[in-house]
Design a protein around this nucleic acid. Sequence first.
DNA 1: ATGCGTGCAAACGATTTGCAGAGAA
DNA 2: TTCTCTGCAAATCGTTTGCACGCAT
Lengths: 131, 131
Amino acid sequence: METATEGRRTVQKTVIRQALDQREGFVSAQQLHSALEAAGDRVGIATVYRQLNALAAAGLADTITVDGEILYKACGDRTHHHHLVCERCGRSDQIDPPSESWIQSAAAARGYTVTRHVFEVFGLCADCAAA
Amino acid sequence: METATEGRRTVQKTVIRQALDQREGFVSAQQLHSALEAAGDRVGIATVYRQLNALAAAGLADTITVDGEILYKACGDRTHHHHLVCERCGRSDQIDPPSESWIQSAAAARGYTVTRHVFEVFGLCADCAAA
DNA sequence: ATGCGTGCAAACGATTTGCAGAGAA
DNA sequence: TTCTCTGCAAATCGTTTGCACGCAT
């Protein structure tokens, strides 16, 4: 597996990736767009969406859907993992399920062939709980 | 806790609930609406949405979100449980996680207070895999 | 008679896309 | 120059909501 074609280097591409990297947790395209705007970076919302989707497709970003909104998060390693997400500030930590193999067997027991699974835990992080 | 007010009895309410009950698995409001229409039952899409949301709110239906679309499923007992969903036909079976308590501890270890969690496994059921 | 539940259509909010122009290679 | 990437605005799509009317109670 090789690092896919990077395409052309553009300011917006850079700015968007940096903004996403700096975030502690998940952000929506709109939030990221507002943040950039507030920071003085003028980028079209469409570009933000396109860029975010590209990152997700490339496995460089994780996504979760909350309340019909897609949230993105920079994610270095492409390993499959799950998150512990703060519902208030969006921060997130990785969480390790006891085992993923039981999923296969549990599904197989009912005749299913597993293609994918989602597992996300939501709550309040220490800071937000204190506030 | 008491069985909340049922409200008025109407044809559409009945028809929608029946249609949902007859389904093997998850359905979208739109799919259900089309099905009713095809069956000769004329119900407004808005009513389908309102009814489905009411059922979900009352804990009589489970919901999952797939690709930005909300899917509903009749669900007798209000106990918290997870699903094994067929991506092709929408059929679903219940699945039992090894334990839910580890979630609490895993989260607590990182200072989080858990409020909710989603866990869904997608795949192909025996029939669809064969086809 | 009273007012909840419905249907229709307009409103919505998030995301996508067509198209012409800008800038990277 | 060439062709990808961007920006804007219009278009989608699923879902929600305002409003007037019909029907269950």
